[in-house]
């Protein structure tokens, strides 16, 4: 399949329906790349004209801002908004809730106004509109699956139902963790923790959260964020349960269930 960049669209005078903002994890992290590919495959299959920025995409500046480095954040924001506005981008979809939060809440004050969607909401709409069709009796039918709310999709932006609706469309048995929705517990990666060693404590945040997920008896932990994916996978490995419990992004699950 072909994935075209914004530069290519612009050169041919075409406009894509939506810009797929891949994000740094989705671009470089091997595990997250699989999610990127899965999501791109879905878009391609249902015939959505989408573009990526390719080499022109830069970090949104989220980890810098949350670590306290506002200068660096503003630099990145300036450059990204410059690129996006230059192309006249109106609609953005992203597979990272941190990028989503920045686009939705923090770029507008800096002159970056776009309609932005997280990929789980986007998928839910595609399913509702009948553009994405799920095959009967797919791989996940009847499976016990739990869902981990990422902080920046859930509490940060109050999106709790869309990802769950996508999961329900896959005919799964959703089992909630004790801490879910607005009371969900962090995976430990946010606030730039992903990029440093945890402070001294009695255990790690991701171990704790992975334990909560495993307590549900689910065989799959469904996630919506590349950082949660890494953190929870490590937490499950710590308990040597990686053979019986896997962590999957909702996009991967949908890609595997297309009719």
């Amino acid at each position: 399949m072909q994935v075209r960049s914004m530069a290519e669209y612009a050169a041919s005078g075409e406009t894509p329906e939506v810009l797929f903002w891949v994000g740094c994890a989705g671009s470089f992290d091997q595990r997250a790349q699989k999610v990127t590919k899965a999501f791109a495959t879905i878009l391609d299959k249902v015939g959505i004209k989408f573009a990526i920025l390719g080499k022109e995409e830069m970090c949104t500046g989220d980890p810098a801002r949350r670590a306290g480095n506002e200068f660096l954040f503003q630099m990145m924001a300036y450059n990204n908004i410059h690129t996006l506005n230059g192309y006249g981008i109106k609609k953005v979809v992203t597979i990272c809730p941190h990028c989503f939060n920045i686009f939705k809440n923090e770029y507008p004050a800096l002159g970056g106004n776009y309609e932005v969607m997280h990929h789980t909401t986007f998928l839910q709409q595609l399913i509702n509109d009948g553009r994405v069709r799920i095959k009967e009796g797919g791989a996940f039918k009847g499976k016990k699956i739990t869902y981990h709310d990422s902080c920046y999709l859930g509490r940060g932006n109050n999106i709790y139902d869309a990802p769950r609706e996508v999961l329900q469309a896959l005919d799964i048995e959703l089992v909630e963790m004790k801490r879910c929705r607005s009371n969900g517990m962090c995976c430990g990666a946010g606030g730039a923790q992903m990029f440093k060693e945890e402070e001294a404590g009695t255990t790690r945040v991701n171990f704790e959260r992975a334990n909560q997920a495993m307590e549900t008896g689910a065989s799959i932990v469904a996630v919506n964020c590349p950082f949660c994916t890494t953190m929870l996978t490590d937490g499950i490995k710590n308990k040597e349960k990686e053979d019986s419990v896997s962590v999957m992004d909702i996009a991967e699950m949908v890609a595997a269930s297309l009719a």
């Binding site: 470089f28 992290d29 790349q33 590919k37 791109a40 830069m58 990145m76 990029f195």
Partner: peptide, 18 residues
């Protein structure tokens, strides 16, 4: 342009793989 030490030229490498 990314929090890890990767070359910016590899940002869309996944496209080739796909």
């Amino acid at each position: 342009m990314a929090p890890w030490k990767f070359s910016p030229d590899d940002r869309d490498k996944w496209v080739e793989e796909l």
